[in-house]
């Protein structure tokens, strides 16, 4: 455990107000964490703020890719640098650094490849999202059950931990926009074992949700289509164990 290389992948788009605090909290939690911020073409001072801490590696994407493209950049970086575990941790301050170890624990037992922080396993104190969104998330749970026969209660959670094999796989295959629910199907279809643990989430402390109004209709249709299509595809995972 001590020798394991752990990288925290933090996608950030216009998070100048939050990013520094997020980096500080991660380093306070464990100074051995490598903090990687992916600045997804922000138009504010995210880059400067993230670099000013001196505690994080900051990748500046030359154009805005969307959350999936940003996170995948992190997987690629983690893959090139041979990290053992990667934790996806949002740049807006809604996740708690103190819960990262909770997510890593199931991976360290070697029984699981991916661990997702869920708000809905136990009724936690924190942010539970709005009623309409919870209906959407419930629908994703049903789809997960039908398509990959795994029970995942919080498909939209962006608080996740991955092991080395999952990193290598996702570095090559990851959806570009609204990736969270789709990637669960992708992982399940390719025989990765996904575990959920209960976490608490805070309400966003700055910035606005990327999904609202008409966009949410587009979101649901796009994501459901992507989930169904991903489930139809052949398994693409190559075993990297022997490489």
């Amino acid at each position: 455990m001590i020798s394991a290389k752990i990288i925290i992948i933090t996608p950030a788009y216009n998070e100048e107000k939050n990013i520094n605090r997020v980096i500080q909290s991660l380093k306070q939690e464990n100074s051995n964490f490598e903090c990687l911020v992916i600045n997804d073409g922000s138009i504010d001072d995210t880059q400067k703020m993230a670099e000013s801490s001196g505690l994080a590696t900051v990748i500046q994407l030359p154009a805005n890719l969307g959350i999936g493209g940003a996170v995948q950049t992190g997987f690629k970086y983690a893959f090139y640098h041979q990290f053992d575990y990667a934790v996806q941790f949002d740049g807006d301050g809604q996740h708690l650094a103190s819960e990262i170890n909770k997510l890593l624990a199931p991976l360290q037992t070697k029984q699981y490849d991916v661990c997702i922080g869920s708000r809905f396993i136990e009724k936690t104190q924190g942010f539970q999202s709005t009623f309409m969104r919870r209906i959407g998330i419930k629908l994703f749970e049903v789809l997960n059950k039908l398509l990959i026969k795994q029970k995942i209660t919080d498909s939209t959670s962006g608080f996740r931990a991955y092991n080395k094999e999952a990193i290598a796989f996702l570095a090559e295959n990851y959806p570009t926009d609204y990736p969270e629910p789709e990637s669960i199907i992708l992982l399940g279809k390719n025989d990765f074992k996904v575990k959920e643990v209960s976490v608490e989430m805070l309400e966003r402390q700055g910035g606005e949700s990327s999904i609202s109004g008409l966009k949410s209709a587009y979101y649901m249709i796009k994501v459901i289509l992507a989930m169904l299509m991903t489930a139809q595809r052949q398994k693409i995972r190559r075993d990297i164990k022997n490489v």
């Binding site: 990748i59 500046q60 994407l61 154009a63 890719l65």
Partner: peptide, 20 residues
């Protein structure tokens, strides 16, 4: 757009490696 995405990602990574 897929190859464009890959290019953007690699450019970002290369830039940070170059800086290091």
């Amino acid at each position: 757009s897929e190859s464009n995405k890959n290019l953007i990602q690699e450019v970002g990574i290369l830039k940070v490696e170059l800086k290091k």
